[in-house]
Each structure stands twice: as C-alpha cells, then as structure tokens.
Nucleic acid binder design. Structure first.
Lengths: 123, 123
DNA sequence: TCAATTGTTCAATGAATTTTGAACAAGGAC
DNA sequence: GTCCTTGTTCAAAATTCATTGAACAATTGA
C-alpha cells in the first residue's frame, strides 16, 4: 500500500457524500462498477472522461474519501472500488450509487471508447 | 404547493448527492430526522445552525434536490423530510444518511438549544 | 393601525473546488 | 542507455459555492 488510504472504519459518510457530489467522480464510479468485476481499471482507461491531470485530481479525491483503492503497477495505477469496505460501513449504500452511476452518459461513451481501443490493439 | 418541488420520479441521485455533500445541510437533515416524526420543523427552529439568510439558501438547495418539502404556514415555512419519496426512489438510501446525520455535533447543540427555548416559552 | 416575527431577495464578498498547462519522475520497451 | 508511456506536481486561472448584510414582503397579534 504505497498511497494513503483511510482504514475501513475511518471512512466518513460526510466525506463520501462530498466526494460523490461531482459528475466526473460519479462517472469514474460508473466505469469502475462496470469494469472492475475482476481487476479494476488503470487511470489511462478513464481518459475519455477528462484530462490526465484532472483524473489524478479526481481519483485522489475518491481515494482519500475511501471510495476507491489505488495500487501502483509499474508506471500505472490500478483503481478499484472498495466494495466490501463500503458495504461493511454503509450497507446497501454503494449499490444505490452504482445503480445510477452505470447509466450516466459519460460512462457509456468512455467505455465505448475503451472497447474501441482494445479492438484496435488486437488488430 | 406554493414552492417548486421536483416530482418523485424526477429526483436525481447526482443532485441529491451534491446537496448532501455539505455539513450544514447534513445537519439540517439530522435535525429533521430527529424532530419531524410528526410535523417537521420551521426554519426558525434551525436557527442554531447558521444565519437566517444562509438557512434560506441551504433549505432551498435541499428542496430543489427533492430531499425536503417546504410548506408555507403564514409567515413560517414548515420543512419535512421527503422520506417516502426518497425511499421509493432509492430504497434504504435515506436511512443510511440519517443514521450518520443524527449524530452530528451540530445537530446535538441545535436541538438542545431548541428544547431550552421551548422550556423558556412554557415558563 | 402599528409593531413584532418570520423569512426572502439581492448584490457583494470570501472561500473552496475544479480545470489547465508546463515541467517533471518512474518504469518499461527497445 | 534512450525513448515512450503513464501518471504526478505545482502554480495559475477559472468556476462554483457558501456566507454576509441591508432592504424588503407577508403575516400575526396587540
């Protein structure tokens, strides 16, 4: 754990709510919810949402609030939802958020772009 | 219904989250949750939290997001949580919020002040 | 009617957040 | 070693949000 993450029992709802009250960050959650079943996403895969610099900023907010986990992998950063931790702390809460976040238009276009790039790589 | 309120099915989670990401507004929710079992509170009873002007501002935010209902009663405004509407829209969500909001220190002191004033009136 | 109560409006200030770009650091591929 | 990729840092700018105070409107009660 290279980057600072709050312990599960230190995740505070006011902080979580403040972090979720932003469209870009909700969209990040939506992308993760759709893709991190296994392993999450690296920041670059969220590039459809906003600039690199801005992504660093928003992902840090989500991490500091305890909503995502960020693990360095070489020069990349793998981002995953802290599903279990959030469920333990606020049962059912994350499910409600995800149910809405996955349907955000930004999420749709970002994931479409991602699939497109993956296909281009394979070809 | 004199003031504009969103219909139940038009309550949007992003808006709700943005509205809840503020300590003063969370405290308002906390006060309401503790007191509005029957009839809610009027704005003046929330005076312990911040200035009158500022209360107008925050209560409007909560109303526009669909979290509270505001009904004019003479020169007063009765504020109630839209519990049923929020439960219908996002099951369980409000309960999680309330569980945290009622324990906020601001809520404690505001309600203490309120009880004190009520006792003074009766004496 | 007159005064007191309750809350709103408006414009202005202050503060916090978000966004941007240039320069940088760390790893991986060659 | 030398690029290239990925992401960070920093300071600045832009934007949004919260707070304040003065003036006002509406209602209530004496």
């Amino acid at each position: 754990m290279t980057l600072p993450h709050p312990e599960t029992d230190q995740i505070s709802l006011p902080n979580v709510l403040a972090a979720l009250g932003d469209d870009t960050r909700l969209a990040i959650i939506g992308c993760l919810a759709r893709s991190d079943i296994v392993s999450g996403l690296v920041c670059g895969q969220l590039g459809g949402l906003t600039s690199k610099t801005n992504l660093t900023y928003h992902v840090a907010k989500l991490r500091e609030a305890g909503i995502v986990h960020v693990r360095p992998e070489g020069t990349k950063r793998r981002v995953t939802l802290r599903r279990e931790d959030l469920d333990a702390r606020f049962p059912g809460f994350l499910d409600t958020i995800i149910a809405t976040a996955v349907d955000l238009p930004q999420v749709e276009s970002t994931l479409a772009l991602l699939n497109q790039q993956e296909r281009a790589c394979q070809a």
